[in-house]
Design a binder for these strands. Structure first.
Length: 589
RNA sequence: GUCCCGGUAGCUCAGUUGGACAGAGCGCUGGAUUCCUAAUCCGGAGGUCGUGGGUUCAAGUCCCGCCCGGGAUACCA
């Protein structure tokens, strides 16, 4: 819609003798800030008038005068300092909505066709419980995954597990020494966590213990059969846990290539970096230093200490010969480029890794200048408790993901039971699952990605305000309308009647509905799920006002069908939109 | 010290290439329910957009200084 109108008005500018391409940032049409300004507006006449030293309103006037008629536009008018306001024709909007109703994609195009994007998200650690720290990466990554897929992209969702590294020396040592088979059977991850903590503490206290752990690690890395078997067992036990969490969250990956997968490639990466002159030896380690290409303050390999700019290298091999995460990330990046030839790779991690990824991306550019790939660090803020500090349990522990999801469902179940005590328990459980998990996901997606946000059960589960339950409630009400229509008018189908936008409430709802494809595009291109949540919330509010103030089942023939169709398009839009965020909308709530 | 984020209504937060009197929710306050789920809707009050300059026809948005908070800052990831 926006693009269609933008193309149209660009032609009008050209026809009027202006050069819209001269405008920095291009020329486009955006939805109006206020309904009384029409449906879409173009602000370019003012910018262009300034460039060409002309009167903005006159520019706007001549653009309107030169514009070809457009089937969607009822009128274009000049307002204020030189805004061009576009009013859409109600009957055109109605036809568009009818088409959207019949289209599972609601009129959205597929600009991602033929394009590949790799998305790296979730990435939990083996042998540890998934915790609240994993939720943002998982939920945001999954939403970006769904958005891209919806727009036709070929998506490679890659779960880059933390399945290798020094912690496995400790784990193997602990496994051999104090594994409780019974406990492992009952709750494997808790037992793995226990032996890790106990052994880690022993190593901290005693250098001899530390040496034992180191030896176990070396044996593992050398392919010792026993240690490898233990390691593999831990992988499987962990994967069971991950699968359980992902199933509950309805998250899927195309590949799960953990750090261990890249282990055989690390030495080659370092060697290549050194021979190509990108990396060099320093203090026994090997690292990448600044190439002086940019100013110190913009250089990820430079840092100021006490007023003096010094090197801040990215190490790719430690002085003890071991590799670190930068090495793994470079090997991973290379593998992804070679395997899938993606146009873009997205890394969905927390904001603390910004410097790390700036370095990794800079190294890759220097190392592989021939490779064309867009690299984006999609970082996010922290989840805080009411005290403004990282969210923890009352006893100060990290909140485990399983406990969090359990509590979400339990709280939702209480709410559902309170509101609908007559519904049978099995159904209430199903509703509670959708509402509880939806609330948690939505709370995570609704805030701007990069903001920290305060975790608040009551707020996210509230039926008031910008929450998943509010949107789910709107869907459930529509489902109820549709049921009632079927009961009272058996044998009739609303789709046999045209949509008519007579009432201002109807028109307002229709205008919002038609924005859906543009919103999905914007949310995807900006990697900002909250663009979509804001839209869905606004849509639900507009619908609720419509629902409250306009009768449909009691309306006269024809009008009734048209309104039920509007309800239907709204429900589809909300459901598809929520679906893109990984949130279910039950028929009753 | 330096870099990155943030500072918008009492609280929690949106604010799309700079655009029309700065928006929403909660809270506060006044209304609406013989009717499609009131888990809702309609109205009202409430803001020097941290601060001081600058650029512009137009600045919450761009530039510079300063204040406050969080994060990052070679052998963890």
């Amino acid at each position: 819609m926006e693009e269609e109108l933008s193309v149209w008005i660009r032609e009008a500018f050209s026809a009027a003798g202006f050069e819209p391409e001269k405008l920095s940032g291009g020329l486009s049409v955006v939805p109006t800030a206020d309904d009384r300004f029409g449906d879409y507006q173009c602000n370019a006449a003012m910018g262009l008038a300034r460039l060409q030293k002309k009167n903005p309103r006159e520019v706007a006037q001549s653009v309107i005068g030169s514009a070809k008629p457009h089937e969607a536009i009822e009128k274009a008018e000049i307002a204020g300092a030189g805004f061009i306001n576009l009013h859409l024709r109600a009957d055109w909007m109605a036809r568009r909505l009818e088409a959207a109703q019949a289209d599972p994609r609601l009129g959205a195009s597929e600009p991602g066709q033929g394009r590949t994007v790799v998305i790296d998200y979730s990435s939990p650690n083996v042998a540890k419980p998934m915790h609240i720290g994993h939720i943002r990466s998982t939920v945001i990554g999954s939403a970006l995954d769904r958005l891209h897929r919806f727009l036709g992209y070929r998506v490679i969702a890659d779960n880059h597990l933390g399945d290798w590294g020094t912690q496995f020396g400790i784990l193997v040592l602990g496994w051999k020494r104090e594994l409780d088979e019974q406990a492992l059977k009952a709750d494997p991850i808790t037992e793995l966590e226990r032996i890790y903590k106990a052994t880690h503490a022993a190593c901290e206290a005693d250098p001899a213990q530390r040496e034992l752990a180191r030896q176990e690690l070396v044996r593992l890395q050398q392919g010792d059969a026993e240690n490898l078997t233990i390691w593999e067992t831990m992988q499987h036990l962990s994967q069971d846990q991950f699968n359980e969490m992902y199933q509950r969250l309805d998250v899927r990956f195309d590949v799960t290539l953990g750090e261990s997968f890249y282990n055989p490639r690390l030495a080659g990466v370092v060697e290549s970096l050194v021979t190509s002159g990108v990396a060099r030896e320093s203090l026994g380690a090997i690292g990448v230093f600044s190439d002086g290409g940019v100013a110190d303050k913009d250089d990820p390999f430079r840092i100021s200490r006490n007023g003096e700019w010094i090197d801040n290298p990215c190490l790719v091999r430690k002085s003890d010969g071991g590799f670190n995460y930068a090495t793994t990330d470079l090997a991973t990046l290379t593998y992804r480029v070679e395997t899938w030839s993606p146009e873009t790779i997205l890394y969905v991690t927390d904001g603390r890794q910004q410097l790390h990824f700036r370095q990794i991306f800079a190294i890759f550019r220097r190392w592989r200048p021939d490779v064309q790939v867009r690299l984006e660090h999609i970082w996010f803020g922290s989840i805080l408790g009411a005290d403004g500090k990282p969210f923890r349990t009352r006893s100060g522990e990290t909140v485990k993901l399983r406990d969090l999801l359990d509590e979400a469902e339990e709280r939702a179940f209480k709410l559902v039971t309170e509101k609908s005590p007559d519904v049978e328990e099995r159904v209430r459980r199903d509703i509670a699952r959708a509402v509880g998990l939806g609330a948690v996901k939505y709370a995570d997606l609704m805030t701007h990605r990069q903001s920290d946000y305060v975790f608040n059960w009551d707020k996210m589960l509230s039926l008031e305000g910008n929450t998943a339950p509010y949107l789910q409630y709107a869907c459930a009400r529509i489902a109820s309308v549709q049921d009632k229509y079927g009961e009272r008018f058996p044998g009739r189908s609303p789709a046999d009647q045209p949509i008519v936008l007579g009432d201002p409430m109807e028109r307002r709802l229709a205008a919002r509905l038609l924005q859906f494809p543009d919103v999905v595009l914007r949310a995807t291109n900006q990697y900002k799920p909250n663009v979509l949540t804001d839209y869905l919330y606004d849509l639900a509010q507009v619908y609720s006002a419509f629902y409250q103030n306009v009768p449909f089942l009691k309306a006269e023939d024809g009008v009734r069908e048209s309104r039920v169709r509007l309800c239907d398009v709204t429900a589809k839009t909300l459901r598809v939109g929520l679906g893109l965020l990984g949130i279910e909308a039950p028929d009753r709530i």
